[in-house]
């Protein structure tokens, strides 16, 4: 691992250090570099926009590609159960590869840059997304499947009209885990020669404020993406949050809670 780091380090150095702006208190704080310089961070937040967008781009592309590939694999193995152990094994091996090793394996083929990073990150998402789709499909209640078939649905109709809609909660759960973990792993994309928050940290590895700001942005990105997926799921599985109305007369707080939850629970 150390050897890998040593050989990769020069590549990363290319991006260059940051320029310290001549400023009063903030400059002193930065020069001392003992604490987090909030004032400096606010003044210089612009410099983090590009790395953040690069980071976001890598995450979104990787999860989208990962989902597309894992989805195709899941459909392929859905009616061919014997494929499942093989697919799980392959994606599992990919998942356990050290990312730095994977980058160095890919570099001679795909060269330095975002492409290499996205390929590696995509491979990492497969295991989680694939397993969740497979689990979701196999958790579809047998009687729903039986009813669909008994009503005269073809395999394809059964899949798209019954099985996949009922698997949505598990599928989205997989996407959420994959997205959050990709936000974290994408910081290592620096070793593939791609930008992003990792490059910003690595290039100024001794600058405490920079590290903290980048870390905070990554956390915020993970939270926001997770929340977006959660909202998407809430819209897609409205049927699941409905509670039986036969339970009895509503309590006196029911109206209050309904109003509170109205914007989420309301139908279009």
């Amino acid at each position: 691992m150390l050897v890998a780091l040593a050989t990769l380090a020069p590549i990363a150095q290319g991006s260059g250090g940051f320029v310290r702006e001549p400023d009063d208190a903030a400059t002193n704080c930065v020069a001392e570099n003992t604490t987090v310089c909030v004032g400096w961070a606010i003044d210089n937040i612009d410099r983090y926009v590009t790395p953040t967008l690069q980071h976001l781009e890598m995450v979104v592309l990787s999860v989208v590609f990962g989902f597309a590939i894992a989805f195709a694999m899941a459909l392929l193995s859905h009616r061919r159960r014997w494929l499942v152990p093989g697919f799980t094994g392959v994606t599992g091996v990919l998942y356990t590869l050290p990312s730095i090793a994977l980058f160095s394996l890919l570099l001679p083929v795909t060269g330095r840059g975002t492409a290499t990073a996205v390929i590696a990150l995509t491979l990492y998402t497969l295991q989680i997304i694939y397993r969740n789709i497979v689990t979701g499909l196999s958790n579809v209640p047998g009687e729903a499947r039986d009813a669909g078939r008994g009503m005269g649905m073809t395999d394809r109709q059964l899949l798209w009209r019954v099985e996949l809609p009922l698997a949505v909660p598990e599928i989205v759960a997989g996407l959420r885990i994959a997205t959050v973990s990709t936000v974290a792993i994408a910081t290592l994309a620096i070793f593939a020669g791609a930008g992003g928050l990792g490059a910003e940290i690595y290039n100024n590895i001794t600058f405490k404020t920079g590290i903290v700001v980048c870390g905070a942005i990554a956390i915020a990105m993970a939270i926001v993406l997770d929340a977006l997926l959660f909202l998407a799921q809430a819209r897609l599985v409205r049927w699941r949050r409905q509670t039986p109305t036969v339970a009895g007369p509503p309590g006196r707080f029911a109206g209050f809670f309904r109003r509170l939850l109205g914007p989420i629970g309301a139908r279009p």
Binding site: P141, E143, A144, A147, V162, L166, V237, W239, R240
Partner: peptide, 8 residues
């Protein structure tokens, strides 16, 4: 059996 309505 078990009615089997589509829950979604």
């Amino acid at each position: 059996q078990q009615i089997g309505l589509f829950p979604h």
